[in-house]
Computed example of a mutant assay.
Amino acid sequence: MTDSTRSSWSPALVEATRSFAPRTGYLAACTMGLPMLATLEAQRLDLESWRTGGTSPIEYGAVVEEARVAYAALVAVPASRVAIGSQTSAMVAVVAAAVPDGAEVLCVDGDFSSMVFPFLQQRHRGVRVRSVPLAELASSVSAATWLVAWSAIQSATGAVADDRAIVAAAGRHGALTLCDTTQAAGVLPIDAGRYDLTVCHGYKWLCSPRGAAFLTVSESAAPRLRPVQAGWYAGESVWGSCYGPTMELASDARAFDVSPAWPAWVGALPALRALASLDTAEVWRRASGLGDLLCDRLDLPRQGQAIVTWVDPGADLVSLAAAGLTASGRAGRVRIAFHLWNDEEDVEAVVRALRA
């Protein structure tokens, strides 16, 4: 990484790097992100307000809508195309329920289970799930493919999908696209409008509490789905939808909303606003630049990724933990993930730990 000093980055990015607790030795954004100081303060105030009876569902609802708008700006779609949820697998399950009997869903070998298991649960209807290596995903789309489902960045390896080729192949064959951006949004530029559907949980790179997640639904894809999880929060009028039997769902993506876990959204809002204000391309250059710097220092081929991985029988992960560094291991690999709170000192700390 050539521009490795703080002075090389925009003032907004530098300020964002100061929004976290300093020198944590935390290198696992791909497992769970760290909270911004503003998130901690917002949640502290919310807990105090709850303690004294000062909270209300209506005020929480306003927070959720602000978070929806901030996330929409981050992924470059109108807020009307964003639904809120709590878990990616539950949102993928809505898509899985819409797959026609006997249709094919094309997935990636080794992708995160939330992008695979919901479709496997539809096999009783004849739904066929075919998995191929990530590099072969675009070339494997066929006329029989109803949906292509993949993660923008692979959880186990940090590999970045060739989204342009995948989307183009799906378009040629009339297949829907579902992209999981959980390992990408907040660190890699995402234009959710390029896909029919995206899912994203905020507790990793979006630095939000667990329980704040998103589904984006294009106008063309919405009529092909059924909001099978619809509840009061999916109503055109939320507060007019508390009781049956009459049901009038929202006319936009809110029809796919689920009732929010309120405290999670209080913490998510400051982080989403901060991340939406940044140049995500710059965030990616910084994070992937730290990854390449680590590869250089460890004599590994550059990976061009924010998540650097290598095969490890277990000794390297133990060495990192012994040095007080928090990394993660998946599928027999060490994962070192760089985000806003990391810098070159973290790279050197990894090198020292492994060479010790």
Rank of each mutant, 00 (worst) to 15 (best):
M1G: 15
T5Q: 12
R6W: 12
S7D: 15
S8W: 02
W9F: 15
W9T: 03
W9I: 09
V14T: 13
V14F: 02
A16Y: 02
S19Q: 01
P22I: 08
P22L: 06
P22T: 08
R23V: 10
Y26T: 01
L27V: 04
A28V: 07
T31F: 15
P35G: 00
M36T: 09
L37A: 00
E41D: 01
Q43K: 01
D46C: 01
E48G: 12
S49F: 01
S49L: 05
S49G: 04
T52A: 09
T52Y: 04
G53I: 02
S56R: 01
P57A: 03
I58E: 12
Y60I: 07
A67P: 14
A73G: 14
V75T: 13
V77A: 05
P78T: 06
P78H: 04
A79S: 15
I84A: 09
G85I: 01
V92P: 01
V92A: 08
V95W: 05
E104M: 08
V105H: 11
V105I: 06
C107N: 05
D111F: 06
D111C: 13
V116D: 00
F117W: 04
P118S: 07
H124N: 04
H124D: 04
R125D: 12
V127T: 13
V127W: 08
S131Q: 13
S131L: 08
P133K: 06
A138M: 04
A149W: 02
A149H: 09
Q154E: 14
Q154D: 15
A156Y: 03
T157S: 15
G158A: 02
A161G: 10
A161T: 14
D163F: 07
A169I: 02
A170G: 02
A175E: 01
T181W: 04
A185W: 06
V187Q: 06
P189E: 07
I190V: 15
G193M: 02
R194Q: 11
R194T: 08
R194F: 04
D196C: 06
L197Q: 04
T198V: 11
C200Y: 06
H201M: 02
K204L: 04
R210W: 06
R210K: 03
A212E: 09
T216D: 13
E219R: 11
E219D: 08
A222T: 00
V228H: 01
Q229K: 13
A230P: 13
A230W: 14
A230I: 14
A234V: 12
E236V: 00
S237D: 10
S237I: 00
W239V: 04
Y243L: 15
T246E: 12
T246A: 14
T246V: 10
L249E: 03
F256Q: 07
F256S: 02
S259I: 03
A261I: 00
P270S: 08
T280S: 10
V283H: 11
V283C: 13
W284S: 08
A287F: 10
L293F: 01
L293P: 00
C295M: 02
D296F: 08
D299I: 00
Q303G: 13
P313Y: 07
G314L: 11
A315P: 07
D316G: 09
L317M: 11
A321F: 05
A323P: 03
G324C: 00
L325F: 03
T326Y: 11
S328W: 11
G329K: 09
R330T: 10
G332P: 06
R333F: 13
F338W: 05
N342P: 02
D343A: 08
D343M: 03
V347K: 09
A353P: 11
